[in-house]
Write a protein that binds this DNA or RNA. Structure first.
Lengths: 156, 156
DNA sequence: GCTACAAAGGATGTGTTTATCTTAATATCA
DNA sequence: TGATATTAAGATAAACACATCCTTTGTAGC
């Protein structure tokens, strides 16, 4: 409805990494398996998140991806801005190039408050909140038959 | 952010038609010019809205498109369901195939109320409301240098 | 240094959305 | 009936998102 597949992968992957022990790097392959995402494509997404300074990446043995310091405080908004671009929060809902409080489209007045709520939510939700939700067992990060979660339980 | 280009054209076009005298058919070319939309593509969009029973179409001289009876009561939700499909309101924000109140993704609880607001807004907004907003002159339907609006004033 | 491993980078393929072009069908009017 | 105007319909193309494949580069451990 709102987020591209790329953004969905990005969010899922970052939450997954945030559920893993801090400082231990996580393989692209592992993330892809746990999310049921195509590994080669996910690799590109993760690469992009590295460029956006959300992740560190390491090559070779013991390689993989891990969150930057303070990575638990990454918000969904930060992720979305990287993967969808800045137009995400700016663009007019009807697609007009010019649409503002001064010169509004017919939906502007009614849409603005909802947009603000969306923005607030995306800025509120951090990786540690979301990772905690997943680790509690009440919320699921994948459709796969409990693969991710069972492995999670082994580690915790 | 939310709506595809196709949906944006569809909404704009229907609002434009709703600003015109009822029962008089409007040419695709006229709509496209006033919205600054590609006419051949808009024709496909309008065709689709006809199939969705929102518009009548007439060929030949004096042809064009006009709203069905009760067309002013068309809601944005009706339009969106035709152009985006039913998944629009159903799909999980993180893209999970399984995500419900019972089995929620980590965003589900926070996202649901916002989704409900969006749905409510789309169901509330009808073409006559939006057309009235445009005709009042306070809201604009196009980026073009006042072409649509000036012609509108001539007709009213 | 050698080897294995994992990400980086580039080329390519596939599907969908957006857009265009051409021809056919249809309606009006002379 | 014929000329003209308009949408319908189908084929095609362009752009983009999504996905895969292959080669290169960097790194760790031996």
């Amino acid at each position: 409805m709102i987020l591209s597949r790329t953004t969905q992968y990005a969010i899922q992957a970052l939450i997954y990494i945030a559920t893993q022990p801090r400082g231990v790097s996580v393989l692209n392959r592992t993330i892809a398996e746990n999310l049921g995402a195509p590994p080669t494509y996910l690799a590109k997404v993760l690469q992009n998140l590295c460029r956006g300074n959300l992740l560190y990446s390491y090559r070779g043995k013991q390689g993989g991806f891990c969150l930057r310091e303070e990575g638990e405080k990454i918000t969904l908004m930060q992720i979305v801005l990287i993967t969808e671009g800045p137009g995400f929060t700016e663009d007019c809902v009807l697609g007009l190039k010019i649409c503002s409080d001064k010169v509004p489209c017919p939906m502007h007045a009614k849409w603005s408050p909802i947009k603000q709520e969306i923005v607030r939510l995306l800025k509120d939700q951090t990786l540690d909140i979301l990772a905690a939700a997943v680790m509690s067992g009440k919320y699921q990060l994948t459709d796969l038959p409990a693969a991710a979660f069972s492995e999670l339980k082994l580690r915790t």
